[in-house]
């Protein structure tokens, strides 16, 4: 029942297997946990504080069109970088793209501050391998039963799992990316892309308004607030989209679809569809479901920048549906 994307991923896992004894697939180490805590504070906690500052500042200084534009453009770029690049292309290989497009998607995705592309890919492939079972890095369903178990699970899956977590073996989980020179280069300069993602809106805000205040609000709206919004969207996939919402297919995990979230996270919240068909570039699986990530892939294809776009057929979709007795 594996689709093509899964077969490729499966083969890669097999090839990476050591003959002697089972390979170590994750590691917990104080050294890594220290780096993770630092990353968590800088790119997950600071954007919350920055967003709070932006809101307080509104009382003294009304938001400008420039701020809103910077927010919108950088929200789109970094969000699509995660959804189309990190997720649909690099992790799941659901289409192919030229080297410049791969580099651009990797760079925009890096600006979201959710980890380098190779780490993100390895962790997300592990999530699909073990969805909601022991070893899943961010399942909300492994924290006891009842209401309090769900609340604990939600907090873990949405936010606190990132403070310190087992780190995946990237040679095992992402050997394909390690063979791609372009992606090695993008990954190596992860922190540069984050800094550029904060610096560019700051500079534009300052230049357009010819003021330090403009630079500050450019930084807050084009940097901090958009980072916060993109993050909360992606965190909701890990928490809400494994807790509440609708299910339609038979899958081993507890993933769900949440339709109302789709316009705000580029179609990612058709997360249950995605767990059922991880190799599909479309998460909506139908034209009438809002899936901006997929629409942009189609747009790239129109210009010859994306090809071999994988989508399951109607029959393939139907035969996976839950049959009511």
């Amino acid at each position: 029942m594996l689709n093509r994307g899964d077969q490729i991923a499966h083969q890669m896992f097999q090839q990476a297997q050591l003959p002697g004894q089972p390979r170590q697939k994750v590691i917990d180490s104080p050294h890594l946990h220290k780096m993770q805590r630092m990353h968590f504070f800088l790119f997950d906690v600071l954007p919350i504080l920055g967003t709070a500052c932006a809101i307080v500042l509104l009382f003294f200084h009304p938001i400008t069109t420039v701020d809103l534009t910077l927010f919108f453009v950088f929200w789109m770029l970094s969000g699509l970088g995660i959804s189309i690049g990190y997720h649909r292309l690099f992790t799941h290989r659901s289409f192919k793209a030229s080297a410049p497009v791969r580099a651009a998607l990797g760079i925009f995705g890096s600006m979201a501050g959710q980890g380098g592309v190779i780490s993100w890919t390895a962790m997300h492939r592990r999530h699909h391998e073990l969805g909601d079972q022991e070893g899943d890095l961010h399942s909300p369903n492994l924290h006891g039963s009842g209401f309090s178990g769900k609340i604990k699970g939600f907090i873990h899956a949405h936010f606190t799992w990132m403070v310190a977590h087992p780190y995946p073996n990237v040679v095992h989980y992402a050997p394909d990316l390690l063979k791609d020179r372009v992606m090695i280069w993008v990954n190596r300069h992860y922190y540069t892309w984050i800094i550029l993602g904060l610096l560019i809106p700051t500079v534009i805000g300052g230049l357009v308004s010819q003021s330090w205040m403009g630079a500050l609000t450019g930084f807050l709206w084009g940097g901090m607030v958009r980072m916060f919004i993109v993050e909360q969207g992606i965190f909701a996939l890990n928490s809400l989209c494994h807790l509440i919402g609708r299910r339609r297919f038979v899958t081993d995990d507890q993933s769900t679809n949440i339709s109302w979230l789709a316009p705000f996270i580029f179609g990612e919240s058709w997360h249950h569809n995605h767990h059922a068909f991880p190799g599909s570039a479309s998460f909506g699986l139908a034209w009438y479901r809002i899936d901006p990530g997929y629409w942009v892939i189609r747009l790239l294809a129109l210009f010859g920048q994306a090809w071999d776009i994988k989508v399951p057929t109607k029959e393939q979709i139907e035969r996976r549906e839950i049959r009511s007795a």
């Binding site: 170590q24 697939k25 994750v26 590691i27 780190y167 040679v171 095992h172 390690l178």
Partner: peptide
Amino acid sequence: SALTTALAMD
């Protein structure tokens, strides 16, 4: 650091 960690595991 990602690759170094993978190397350590193997």
